[in-house]
Design a protein around this nucleic acid. Structure first.
Lengths: 195, 195
DNA sequence: GTCTATACCGCGATAGAC
DNA sequence: GTCTATCGCGGTATAGAC
């Protein structure tokens, strides 16, 4: 117990980030004011600037942290030798990771145009890195003769769009469990790549 | 020649709508000001209110007109008896229609949250109407035993997400022609539904 | 039909008290 | 660490001249 744990300082920062994330996802970055974020947290607007230099950094940091977690979690997956198993692993990982973080996903896809130039380039590079990992899986399977794909780049776009689309309609506690959704989507992906 | 055709009044309205569409697509509804739209058209901000009651109507009208054109164009397609031919027709239509109108598509998907409640409900109903038409195609093929689909609702979401995704990366004059992209995507869709 | 001028409000961000 | 107060700006929308 060397130091106090429940001081407001240690708790206000994360609360600001999570309020900002919820509000940005719901109403859009440009439509949300610093005063609204402050009200959600229960402080005055001026106090936010103890935790972020400006509104833009609030957006960039949440997008960066989201993509970094995505890349790290993906990198931590166990290795698979079989191309089909690798693709199944990617499919299930993508659906599960994205659906656990629907606010962050929504922001990462919708608010790119509200990043200033340097921040945009950094975020885009991370997104391309992730896409390249799926493309590598597809290319590996194609080279092994397991997938029938005329164009792995297009297939990458198609698979990612299809899988990410789950976040737009899936809601916990609805008609289907997420693992059932995974099964159905994996079945479609598998057939689409010709495996 | 009963009346003057080139009066500014007949030309300013459409120019406002197209400037607003371009700016909303590029920067987002909330981030674009009426002054910016006016500057783009070459009039003063006050003059916009001769053509729209407010900024919200500008957004709603462009989304409504886009979806109405989508529904009308789809309804005008020639009838097909064969389920596979119907799905191919839908696939190619969807890609072609959406890629010819990337600004409107972007807005229709990204700015839903900036519609006020009544407008949102109307737009959502139109979008669901369109999705139901694809689901009917899939259901028809499934009932005929031509498609292997455990869940036509999920397949509808998957196909629409995949096809609409083309608008996020396709650019005229790039590596591939749009009709080649259609071919590749149709091939993936066909296999995904088990036809 | 479009202009200028302006009402009124809320924005992001900062300064200085406590 | 948070508050109150405030700066300077730009937002939507309207009024009235031309």
């Amino acid at each position: 117990m060397a130091r106090k744990k429940n001081s407001s300082a240690e708790v206000t920062g994360p609360r600001i980030r999570s309020a900002a994330q919820r509000l940005f996802a719901r109403h859009g970055y440009a439509a949300v004011s610093m005063r609204q974020i402050a009200a959600e947290v229960g402080v005055q607007a001026g106090a936010l600037y103890m935790y972020t230099p400006d509104k833009q950094s609030l957006l960039y940091d949440m997008m960066h942290d989201h993509l970094q977690a995505l890349l790290d979690s993906h990198a931590a997956l166990p290795e698979c030798a079989d191309p089909v198993a690798r693709l199944e692993q990617f499919t299930r990982f993508h659906i599960r990771f994205h659906n656990a973080r629907s606010d962050a996903v929504f922001i990462a896809y919708m608010e790119l145009r509200n990043l200033d130039e340097g921040n945009f380039k950094r975020i885009e590079a991370m997104r391309r890195d992730y896409e390249a990992r799926l493309q590598a899986v597809l290319e590996h399977g194609r080279a092994a003769g397991v997938f029938q794909l005329p164009d792995t780049k297009l297939a990458t776009f198609a698979v990612i769009a299809m899988l990410t689309g789950v976040t737009t309609w899936y809601r916990e506690g609805g008609r289907l469990s997420l693992s059932h959704v995974e099964d159905v989507y994996w079945n479609m992906v598998r057939k689409a790549v010709g495996a």
